[in-house]
Amino acid sequence: MHSIPGRRLIISLFLIFLLLPIYWLVNMSFKTNAEIVTTMTLWPHQPTLENYKRIFTDESWYSGYINSLTYVLINTVISIAVALPAAYGFSRYRFLGDKHLFFWLLSNRMAPAAVFALPFFNLYSAINLFDTPWAVALAHCIFNVPLAVWILEGFVSGVPREIDETAFLDGYSFPRFFVKILVPLIASGIGVAAFFCFMFSWVELLLARTLTSVNAKPISAIMTRTVSAAGMDWGLLAAAGVLTIIPGALVIWFVRNYIARGFALGRV
């Protein structure tokens, strides 16, 4: 791959630009509020774990992480499960309205969450799912299912059709072919799709906040609590923020080799 002059400098500067604000958040999370407000220090002079301790010992804090992870995982499982057969269908067959259906799915990926906040609130209250992880998980399907279909379709198309035909000649039934042959072949694609479902469900706040009140409140909504009469609890806010970055950083590490292709939605 050809590169441009000064590329080391450019990429280094850009990575520093990306890391600096994150460093500042991490830095603040290890400081006491007194240090944050009174002095400007580039690193914590009196490092403290107090902020993290409060989050891990106070149930109203750590339950937020559990709630968030619960609906993210439910959403990922639903999205992949329904998207897999559809991706195969779109990739291998032409059928009545396939292009329109594909476009309609795509358009739902693009629909603004703000439009759906209120109707979702009504809908999930009506079917008694309000304030459960299921409500958020199902609501997030509106953008994650189309995305998963889109990504997986790209990966399924990368599998030559001869493989399907050989399997059917060998007497594989369709479900058996699907589970035993196709799924292992596109395992990396499933990983990438799951990563994206995880990612977009994890970062979304508006719907998650609108559809929960007490029991299923996501961590991002709980974070707004740090504003109190005594002013902002900056250290605690920063610590909570750092903890929301960690799950993302962990999943990136697992899919790092597929990231680039995944972001191209399996279409490079």
Binding site: L18, P21, I22, W24, L25, M40, V203, L205, G248, A249
Partner: peptide, 30 residues
């Protein structure tokens, strides 16, 4: 590089806001 590049994409959007809110504040932000 890939991991660092992808990092901002996986931060919850309100935390992105929080990061820049803190980072940009004249009193406590770098």
């Amino acid at each position: 590089c890939l991991v660092i590049l992808a990092l901002p994409l996986l931060i919850p959007w309100n935390v992105v806001g929080t990061i820049w809110q803190i980072f940009g504040r004249p009193d406590i932000g770098l």
